[in-house]
């Protein structure tokens, strides 16, 4: 048996995840070394863009860095797990389950702040 997480390969394009042109971001799917190249603002945009493309069904919804995600119902507690996996994959970090709380995931700002703790 091989447990997932052993290798990191971009083998299946995330084609359905986003229409980059729609939101004006073009680097979403780039496989870059975030530790070195991404700054805080870019990180926030990356997470925001992912949240919008994956979890927001109504394209008229205005989602900002501060919009409550979990407490508003945009992202439910089950889906939060996929968001956690995304963050861990993208930033190559491991967030302990005790820290992956609804409060910590409740906005893009709080998510980025959490991620930052494990990047340092």
């Amino acid at each position: 048996m091989q447990k997932s997480g052993a290798r990191r390969l971009e083998i299946f394009p995330h084609s359905k995840m986003i229409n980059p042109l729609k939101k004006g971001f073009v680097y979403f799917n780039l496989n870059i070394n975030f530790m070195e190249k991404i700054n805080l603002e870019e990180m926030k945009d990356l997470v925001l863009n992912y949240v919008i493309s994956e979890y927001i069904e109504d394209e008229d919804e205005k989602i900002t860095y501060d919009t409550p995600l979990i407490s508003s119902g945009y992202v439910d507690s089950f889906s939060m797990v996929s968001l956690l996996v995304f963050l861990e994959n993208k930033f190559k970090i491991k967030i302990p389950p005790s820290k992956a709380t609804p409060d910590a995931f409740d906005s893009v700002n709080s998510i980025v702040s959490l991620v930052n703790q494990y990047l340092k």
Binding site: S4, G5, A6, L9, I11, H14, S79, S82, N89
Partner: peptide, 21 residues
């Protein structure tokens, strides 16, 4: 297809959208 975390996420999201969270 080669196993890995990105594929895992891809499959998780596939089920979430097709069936439910």
């Amino acid at each position: 297809f080669i196993p890995g975390p990105d594929l895992e996420l891809e499959i998780m999201n596939f089920i979430r959208k097709k069936l439910s969270p």
